[in-house]
Amino acid sequence: MPDTRGSIVIGWDIGGAHLKAAWAEDGRLRDAVQVPCRLWQGMGELDAALTTVLERLPVNADHVVTMTGELVDLFDDRAQGVHTLIDRMAAALPQGRLRVYAGRRGLLSPQEARGQVMDVASANWMATAAVVSRLLPAALLVDMGSTTTDVVPVRDGAVVARGVTDHERMAVEELLYTGLTRTAVMAMERTALVAGERLPMMAEYFATSADLYRVLGRLDEATDQHPAADNGAKTVAASLRRLARMVGHDADDYDPAVWRAMAADLTERQLRRIHDAACRVLSAGVPPLPVDAPVVGAGVGRVVVKEVAARLGRPYHDFCDVVGAPGQDWVASCAPAAAMALLG
């Protein structure tokens, strides 16, 4: 059968909270885009996101897709999620021009992929790591997104992760449920540092990690694409109010510097968690990664990944630089989609 693939490839990453796409022409990445997609609220969210993204992409292109959205509680199980997402993408895109990423099985037709649910499910991290492994002989990939962080070792030009499925990866800390913008503050720690006291935090969805980075002046607002926890304003004052509420206070109870110190302490503990996970992943390698193997930063949380690299004493390389797209921040923020465009 002749190869009918064209020179333009669009890579898709269907998450539970965002839809990401990147396109490459003749093997060079050109652009990437991320839009919110609250998939747990229904398939209409994906339909709307697809319409928005497709308007910004070349028409005559081949398409390759990876996903993590099969995990949302819209679906009864992963099989239903994978099948539904494959079928929806196949219906929305030109016939015969879609392939689905199935991890170590590679790219499959939609029909083939429906029969390989566990290989298709949540394989986006492997796509990013596979591209890194083609370009660097050794590295530690750390992709900090809005919700999760992946820590993946590459050695001798191969991905050497210990886990594959979500539960395997969580067990060895190659997958952490902590991110730059969407993580509920109540899930980050049990206590917060407030005016010299460690106060218990309420088990309420009052604030997110975006609030922490906003009050510290470290948040690129373009990366925070979902409503605030209270559906309120995305301002420093509103974020201070949400953080104070986490410990039963009003923002005016203390000087704003107190709430900034609370945010700094919580982000420091998030950084330590990622650093400690990276140390664990590195310690599991036999043989270990070379001491000069870089940390490759991807995702919207690369500002945090840079700090992890510094604490590890390793050089830092941005994913967009590794894949030959310097300065294209959204390529690095949408790394799995960009990887799909290159793998396709």
Rank of each mutant, 00 (worst) to 15 (best):
Y205I: 09
L271N: 03
L289V: 06
G179C: 09
H249N: 06
F206Y: 15
V215I: 06
D250G: 02
L199C: 04
P227Y: 15
L243D: 05
P288T: 10
E221A: 13
G301Y: 13
L240D: 07
G196T: 01
A238F: 00
V185T: 11
R198Y: 06
V185K: 12
A203I: 08
A207N: 09
A184Q: 15
A228P: 00
G217T: 00
Y177K: 12
A238P: 07
R269M: 07
S239F: 01
T223F: 09
V291R: 14
K234S: 03
R280D: 09
A228V: 00
M202L: 14
D211C: 01
W259K: 04
D253N: 03
R241C: 04
A284Q: 14
A244K: 04
D276T: 06
R280A: 09
G297A: 13
T208P: 00
F206V: 13
R198D: 07
G179Q: 11
M246N: 08
L193K: 08
Y254D: 04
D224Y: 13
C279I: 01
L193S: 07
A277Y: 08
T235G: 05
A244M: 01
Y205E: 15
A277D: 07
L240K: 06
T178Y: 11
P256I: 01
L289P: 02
A210G: 13
A298M: 04
P288K: 14
R182I: 04
P290K: 05
L176V: 05
F206N: 14
G179S: 10
V215A: 08
A293L: 14
T235N: 06
R214K: 11
I274Y: 01
G196P: 05
V286I: 08
P287M: 15
L216T: 02
V258S: 04
L175K: 11
D224N: 13
R273G: 03
D211Q: 08
R273S: 06
Y205L: 14
L266D: 12
H226V: 08
G196S: 02
R269T: 12
T191L: 05
A261G: 07
G299A: 08
Y254S: 02
R269Y: 03
C279D: 08
L180T: 03
S283R: 12
D211T: 08
G179N: 12
G299T: 07
H226F: 10
Y213G: 05
D250T: 05
R269N: 09
L212Y: 04
G299L: 10
R242G: 01
S209E: 08
G232Y: 05
H249D: 05
G196M: 03
A263K: 08
R242S: 01
L193N: 06
P227S: 13
A210N: 07
T267F: 04
R245A: 13
P200H: 09
G179E: 09
A203M: 14
D220W: 03
T178N: 11
D211S: 03
P227D: 14
D255M: 03
N231M: 09
F206K: 14
R218F: 00
L175S: 09
G217C: 05
Q225D: 11
L199R: 15
V300Y: 13
S239N: 01
H275M: 00
V295C: 05
Q270I: 07
T183L: 11
